[in-house]
Design a protein around this nucleic acid. Sequence first.
DNA 1: AAGTCAATAACCCTTTCGGGTAATTTTTTA
DNA 2: TAAAAAATTACCCGAAAGGGTTATTGACTT
Lengths: 211, 211
Amino acid sequence: MNEDKIIVSIVEDTDDIREALRVLINGSTGFECVHVFADAEEALDNMPANDINVVLMDINLPGMDGIGCMKTLKPSMPDTQFMMCTVYDDDDHIFNALQSGASGYILKRTSPAQILEAIRDLHEGGSPMSSEIARRVVYSMQQNNKPSEAIELLTDRETQILDFLAKGYLYKEIAVELFISKETVKKHIHNIYEKLHVQTRTEALNKAYHV
Amino acid sequence: MNEDKIIVSIVEDTDDIREALRVLINGSTGFECVHVFADAEEALDNMPANDINVVLMDINLPGMDGIGCMKTLKPSMPDTQFMMCTVYDDDDHIFNALQSGASGYILKRTSPAQILEAIRDLHEGGSPMSSEIARRVVYSMQQNNKPSEAIELLTDRETQILDFLAKGYLYKEIAVELFISKETVKKHIHNIYEKLHVQTRTEALNKAYHV
DNA sequence: AAGTCAATAACCCTTTCGGGTAATTTTTTA
DNA sequence: TAAAAAATTACCCGAAAGGGTTATTGACTT
């Protein structure tokens, strides 16, 4: 379509905000907004599958929320970037939105100039988000992959065996890998369970890795 | 200490860059750089535990790298923010650094003014990173928690039972939860294993969730 | 109306898991 | 050097998991 302009679509239930955004975008060189929708259902029914570069999506919509709407739309719009534009700045919303496929996340209090800048940035392959939002993302990432403190209780050998358990190895397979008897493997695992206060493999893994 | 100034420390092996950063920081109001180190070992030996607000850390150092250095320093410097300042912009380095405790990540080609801005931002609780870096982070986050395609093969009931398996429930416990017989649970699980081509609970969980 | 799929349930059978206990050897620490 | 911790192996035992098979029911499709 028009290669000079970034084609933007808006899903936002508050009339004033929706219109303000539309006017902002259509009044700026290099941007164009043809389609606006007041709720998720309207967007799902009428959003054109092609030719949309960026969707500005409010999270708090009546009925289906913006994240659900994006999840539904995204498969049929592989070349479109989604930017959440919302008042929520809590970890759950941020994390959920980004994990569900949003590439940008800005707050509604963002200035008009910054909104335009964010749209351009998103369209050019960036992930616009404020520095505080980035910190939330980084923090949650750090929490994710860190093994729990529980693992500190384990000896090196026990940790090693726990890793095999995580891969789904049988006792006898671990025994072969480590050149020890199956009974020894069992004893180690028994000790691991005692230290972690669990009774099964899955409980142990949930406790040792994961949050 | 001095509450007006942001106290910065630098770990960087290239003499020119290290000196340029020191001069930049000491020449700017509101910033001060007293300690600079040419490698990780020197930093570990001489870094003061307190009074450092921000550490600018190069990743590519001779001997121990910057990420390892940060990991070692961090426990004794809980109030200090680490910012990686490097030429690497690949996913592995970015992800590794942030997951290991860095709160900011900037590239060496960042302009002096932006470096100062990033330091201030970091000190005020943000996570400065360029928009492209943010995109990498978001992308990796999206990859992480998405269930594999394998799960598409499962029926609703099977997915539901798989969730119980993930929590470590016994067959009979699942049976009680769902008001069905233990044999039925077993049959469902058997079907799940067949669809996923696995033989054990842990293998199934690894295949269904996770990469 | 016939056929498929999903959910339900039961039976037989073997392997694996995990608890309890005891004992020996090696390594580490006090 | 003595004591403590970690790693090793073995045996008994019951519970749980998992393979294979068969069958009934209801819902959906053709």
